[in-house]
């Protein structure tokens, strides 16, 4: 069985700028795939390459095994939820959702019935007659989702789908998107710059950096075993240890990463590697306390669960961790 989306050495250049630079990528059918990266890292261009709004300068893109080099957006069975939703302002919600069916020639009654069913699914039943301008941000997002899904595309692309929503709504939508994807079995590919969103929703993700993919893997792989310093730094708030510090903790003289929550306040004479320094600051976060300390000139953050007796600022502190938690970064 061929993968849903496949990039083979795909590049997209805008003049001298290499927005996407020789990317190889495979997205399995039925995956909930995230493209994560800072702005300008090439993730959105990759999404537009899949939808067909950009054409590769070099390389080949396949969708379910079919080379789409010569296939324009309107013939790709791929739909997009746009970042600003791009709802048609002159149509009501029902006609917005039914638009894709209309242009493919479906009759009025049939497409309206399908549109209403889809609105039901995104919990917008009864809103069909409204204009997009009369909806809230969250509702518009659901309309955009319904509009993209009603044609049962093979791949759904989502461009920063939750970016414009407030925190509470965003968390609710995360769960909803996830369950929707499971129910429909459609391959979802979404672009985000929010690592928390990518980690919690995706079942695999690619981290983009300067037009290249820095790492592909499952969320836990990306989180616990970052392949590069960039990934370690960008995903989560990992501690980056320079080679000398890594070596002093028993590792090879290479950069390594250490998650703040992997560190524990040392019990007396506990075995294993330990970091000793002075407390520089602490921040109470409810579930625990985030402590920063200076070790050999490197600032280290530790997340200590609630109930831990944290030494005051300026006091010495020793933290231990399981040797396996120290992840050595092999790549440069």
């Amino acid at each position: 069985m061929s993968p849903a989306v496949e990039f083979r050495a795909v590049s997209r250049h805008f003049g001298p700028v290499k927005a996407v630079d020789a990317v190889d990528l495979t997205i399995a059918e039925g995956a909930f795939f995230a493209m994560l990266g800072p702005s300008g890292s090439g993730k959105t261009t990759c999404l537009r390459l899949i939808s067909g709004f950009e054409q590769p300068s070099y390389g080949q893109i396949r969708i379910f095994g079919e080379d789409v080099s010569a296939v324009p957006p309107h013939l790709r069975n791929v739909n997009t939820v746009f970042q600003d939703y791009a709802l048609f302002p002159h149509m009501n919600v029902r006609d917005n959702v039914a638009y894709g069916l209309m242009v493919k020639g479906m009759g009025r009654a049939a497409r309206h019935a399908k549109a209403e069913a889809m609105l039901d699914l995104v919990k917008l039943d009864g809103y069909g007659g409204r204009k997009p301008a009369q909806l809230s941000g969250g509702q518009r997002q659901r309309v955009a989702l319904a509009r993209a899904l009603v044609g049962e595309p093979r791949v759904l692309l989502l461009d920063e789908p939750l970016g414009a929503l407030d925190l509470k709504l965003r968390e609710a939508m995360q769960d909803e998107l996830k369950s929707l994807q499971r129910r429909l079995g459609i391959t979802f590919v979404f672009v985000t710059h929010d690592q928390g969103e990518a980690l919690s929703m995706a079942d695999s993700l690619a981290v983009f950096h300067n037009g290249k993919i820095a790492q592909i893997g499952t969320p836990s792989q990306i989180y616990t075993q970052p392949a590069t310093r960039f990934v370690a730094d960008f995903v989560g708030s990992s501690n980056l240890l320079p080679p000398a510090l890594t070596a002093s903790l028993g590792g090879p003289p290479k950069w390594s990463s250490l998650r703040p929550e992997a560190l524990h306040l040392a019990q007396s004479a506990a075995p294993g590697p330990a970091l000793t320094g002075t407390v520089q600051g602490q921040r109470y976060l409810g579930l625990g306390t985030r402590v920063t300390l200076a070790v050999q000139g490197t600032e280290i953050a530790a997340f200590l669960p609630a109930g831990t007796q944290v030494p005051p600022e300026g006091a010495p502190i020793t933290l231990t961790f399981a040797p396996a938690a120290l992840h050595v970064i092999d790549a440069e």
């Binding site: 969708i63 379910f64 095994g65 079919e66 789409v68 010569a70 296939v71 324009p72 309107h74 013939l75 790709r76 069975n77 791929v78 049962e152 595309p153 093979r154 791949v155």
Partner: peptide, 16 residues
């Protein structure tokens, strides 16, 4: 459904 739709009309071919 297929991953790629066929181009059925002149309008569609011109769009391509």
């Amino acid at each position: 459904s297929p991953a790629v739709f066929p181009s059925r009309s002149v309008a569609s071919r011109l769009t391509t």
